[in-house]
């Protein structure tokens, strides 16, 4: 597993490039290099598509997702914090829970859950089932425990009939979880950029492609890649320049994964968030401290890449990110 050989290609090229200081030559060489590399390369960002079929299980999950009965005071449902027109998130820094406190972290998008990877800002939740279980057993988010919720739903004849029809089983923790999780996993949002990747050249404008090019060139793509343009690895915030929230000391929440693992190397480590629907799911960062997308792009450039990205490039990257905003399957909308 030696890493020597593969890296060797690059420095030789590097020597060649920097010896001929002329920029044009560099551009040509880069073009040759990238065309060569793309022949073998798997795409950094892979397209997503809607689920093949909408099952009754998903529809039952949808009903539950939007039902305020899932909270104790009949005031909030799952959709309260995961608003569909706000990119599956909520436009506040940290939402209020049932007990009146604010959550520790910004609410993450419910769209495009990565089934192969851990969830949550700390990457401490292994599956969507696990997340639902935490939410209910914590009892402070929705105010109901599992048994209370089950008895509440059992009082509703319509739910009893639906569960009987869909699962051929009574309402229970298992069946509720299965219904909601199947719905959540179906919430995939194919965007214009996916259509472009699937071959439709007219799906996106030239600005988007330029933005994508910058996105790659600046190195954002190193972490924000894959099906969900992120959300498949953990990364420290502040690699080049240490991250310190503006105007305040480092809070418990800012320690990130350290809160979960208690290992010093996990300080300020977070799961890299996926960038689909990022345009609508502000405010940004783990604590929702930044409202503007362009601000985050600059901040990431500074702390993660050690580069000041000029405003024109920020705008182009923002345009590219906007092309990642997609739509949920119409049958799954409320």
């Amino acid at each position: 597993m030696s890493s020597c050989f593969t890296w060797r290609v690059f420095p030789t090229l590097l020597i060649f490039i920097t010896h001929s200081v002329v920029l044009r030559l560099l551009a040509i060489n880069l073009a040759i290099f990238s065309s060569l590399s793309f022949a073998h390369q798997e795409a950094a960002i892979t397209p997503v598509t809607w689920p093949d079929s909408i099952t009754p299980q998903m529809l039952l999950g949808k009903q539950l997702f939007f039902d305020v009965k899932l909270s104790k005071d009949n005031q909030s449902s799952c959709a309260t914090c995961h608003q569909f027109d706000k990119g599956g998130s909520i436009p506040v820094d940290r939402p209020f829970m049932f007990n009146g406190e604010k959550t520790r972290y910004n609410s993450t998008s419910i769209f495009n859950l990565n089934q192969d990877y851990v969830l949550g800002w700390l990457g401490h939740i292994s599956t969507a089932q696990d997340q639902l279980n935490r939410l209910m057993s914590g009892k402070n988010v929705m105010g109901l425990s599992w048994s209370e919720l089950v008895s509440k739903l059992q009082a509703d004849a319509q739910y009893v009939a639906s569960f009987k029809k869909v699962f051929n089983a009574p309402i229970s923790m298992g069946t509720i979880t299965r219904a909601i999780v199947s719905y959540e996993n179906a919430l995939v949002t194919p965007a214009p950029f996916d259509r472009y990747m699937l071959g439709d050249e007219s799906a996106v404008s030239a600005d988007v492609l330029e933005g994508y090019d910058l996105f790659q060139r600046y190195g954002c793509i190193a972490c924000h890649q894959g099906r969900n343009v992120g959300s498949n690895l953990l990364q420290k915030i502040g690699i080049v320049i240490p991250f310190q929230p503006i105007g305040k000391a480092l809070s418990v929440a800012d320690l990130g994964r350290y809160n979960f693992t208690n290992k010093p190397q996990d300080r300020q480590v977070f799961r890299v968030p996926g960038l689909r629907n990022i345009e609508k799911s502000g405010p940004y960062l783990h604590d929702g401290s930044i409202a503007e997308l362009s601000q985050v792009i600059k901040l990431m450039g500074t702390h993660q890449l050690g580069r000041d990205i000029p405003q024109s490039d920020v705008n182009l990257i923002e345009i590219f990110l906007q092309s990642l905003t997609g739509k949920v399957h119409p049958d799954l909308l409320p």
């Binding site: 950094a44 990877y117 498949n232």
Partner: peptide
């Protein structure tokens, strides 16, 4: 997958996660 991570042509960690899962 781990070996491929080392390659210059590698660009996407989805498969690593998938295989691990």
């Amino acid at each position: 997958q781990i070996l491929r991570m080392d390659s210059w042509y590698f660009s996407n960690y989805d498969n690593v996660n998938l295989v691990y899962k």
